[in-house]
Computed example of a mutant assay.
Amino acid sequence: MNGIEILGFAAAVLTTASFLPQVYQTWKTKDVSALSLPMLTMFLTGITLWFIYGIYKDSPSLVIANGITIVSVFLLVYFKLKYGKK
């Protein structure tokens, strides 16, 4: 593993971990009022594209980080749809 891939993993850990408190908070409180569905949908699409790009570039840091982030953002979208105004 080269230095640039290590840098990628460091960035991956920080950016991926930043979503986990929001997912946990939303799950516990079921308050989705501050979540924007269009933003989450656009972000999910972008992260999915980064994931695919990481596969093609054979970059473990991109694949792992974006794979985990896809799950996190998908959960937020699910919570927004489930707990949003009915």
Rank of each mutant, 00 (worst) to 15 (best):
M1C: 10
N2I: 06
N2L: 08
G3Q: 14
I4G: 01
E5L: 13
E5P: 01
I6V: 10
L7E: 07
L7V: 13
L7T: 14
G8L: 08
G8I: 02
F9A: 14
F9C: 11
A10W: 05
A11S: 12
A12N: 09
V13E: 06
V13H: 13
L14D: 12
T16C: 11
A17G: 13
A17H: 07
L20S: 04
L20R: 06
V23L: 11
V23E: 07
V23G: 11
Y24G: 05
T26W: 00
T26L: 06
T26E: 00
W27H: 04
K28A: 11
K28H: 04
T29S: 10
T29F: 01
K30L: 02
K30T: 04
D31Q: 12
D31E: 05
A34E: 10
L35M: 13
L35C: 13
S36D: 06
M39L: 11
M39W: 14
L40R: 03
L40W: 02
L40A: 07
L40N: 09
T41F: 03
T41I: 11
T41K: 07
M42R: 06
M42P: 12
M42Y: 05
F43L: 13
F43D: 10
T45R: 08
I47Y: 06
L49P: 00
L49E: 04
L49A: 05
L49M: 09
W50F: 14
W50P: 01
F51V: 05
I52Y: 12
I52Q: 09
G54T: 01
I55L: 15
I55D: 08
I55R: 10
Y56M: 13
K57Y: 10
K57R: 14
D58S: 12
S59E: 09
P60S: 08
P60R: 14
S61I: 03
S61A: 15
S61R: 15
L62F: 00
I64D: 04
A65S: 11
A65E: 03
N66R: 09
G67H: 08
G67A: 08
G67F: 07
I68K: 08
T69H: 07
T69S: 15
I70Y: 14
V71L: 11
V71N: 06
V71E: 02
L75Y: 02
L76S: 01
V77N: 00
V77W: 01
Y78L: 15
F79S: 00
K80A: 01
L81T: 03
L81V: 04
K82N: 01
Y83G: 00
G84V: 03
K86F: 05
